[in-house]
Design a protein around this nucleic acid. Structure first.
Length: 231
DNA sequence: GACCAGGCACATC
DNA sequence: GATGTGCATGGT
């Protein structure tokens, strides 16, 4: 099966299995951005607690996070882990937002995709995945987010190599799929949904729903029913 | 107790 | 440039 066909078929199968995921889980673009930073290498449930703390204190806004002291911010986001690091990262983003866009997300997202992405990547603590999550889910730009699940699943399906870089993986998805915000939104969310359930870092064979159909590869990393071994 | 979670920056070789 | 390590909480 061609890689391009696999990418389409996986999407179709996941959508039929799980339906729309209604991502990103957040009420406003600003909340999406804060969530994107807080969820770095962190379980989403912990992020929700941190965001709830910010909401309770009425600080979930550019102005709120600009005024709050680093230590107070770190305390509030403590449940999301790496709280000192992430407090700094939120502060760096806020500094950038006020310096470059007058504190206005509208202004930030009125730039073209390349420019907005380049500027986000200049912010210390915002790497490619966080930048792309912000662009897609807060800014509604057509860009495909690559995360650990995406890499792991599609390596095990034989679509991505072991050594693939973020940019290369992104190119493969974006060359194959239509540049459609709604589809990119849904596809990434579905990948996370599938990954959480079936695709652990260490092989642990449970009956992953994509085996059989895709050359016998098994995203759980265990041995598929057909004789071909999993990656 | 081990493993894992929707990464990133930095030191070291 | 590639490889390793620190950052940290909370759920299973």
């Amino acid at each position: 099966m061609k890689k391009r066909d696999i990418l389409f078929k996986v999407y179709e199968k996941l959508y039929n299995m799980y339906g729309p995921q209604h991502w990103w889980p957040g009420d406003t673009p600003f909340e999406v951005i804060v969530g994107a930073i807080l969820t770095q290498n962190t379980n989403w449930g912990n992020v929700e607690k941190a965001i709830a703390n910010l909401k309770t204190e009425g600080l979930l806004s550019p102005e709120g996070l600009r005024e709050i002291h680093h230590n107070h911010l770190a305390m509030l986001i403590r449940p999301s882990g790496y709280f000192n690091i992430k407090a700094g990262r939120l502060k760096h983003f806020i500094d950038h937002l006020f310096k470059r866009c007058d504190g206005s997300l509208k202004k930030m997202f009125s730039k073209d995709l390349k420019e907005a992405r380049r500027e986000l990547l200049e912010v210390k603590g915002i790497g490619p995945e966080t930048a792309d999550s912000i662009l897609l889910y807060a800014g509604q730009y057509p860009i495909f987010v690559i995360d650990a699940y995406t890499v792991r699943i599609f390596q095990r399906l034989g679509v991505l190599t072991e050594e693939v870089t973020y940019h290369e993986a992104q190119e493969i998805f974006m060359d194959a799929l239509p540049h459609d915000v709604a589809m990119f939104n849904e596809y990434h969310a579905l990948i996370v949904r599938l990954g959480k359930e079936f695709c652990r870092p260490l092989p642990k064979c449970n009956a992953c729903p994509l085996r059989e159909e895709f050359c016998g590869y098994c995203i759980s990393g265990g041995v598929a029913k057909s004789s071909r071994s999993c990656r």
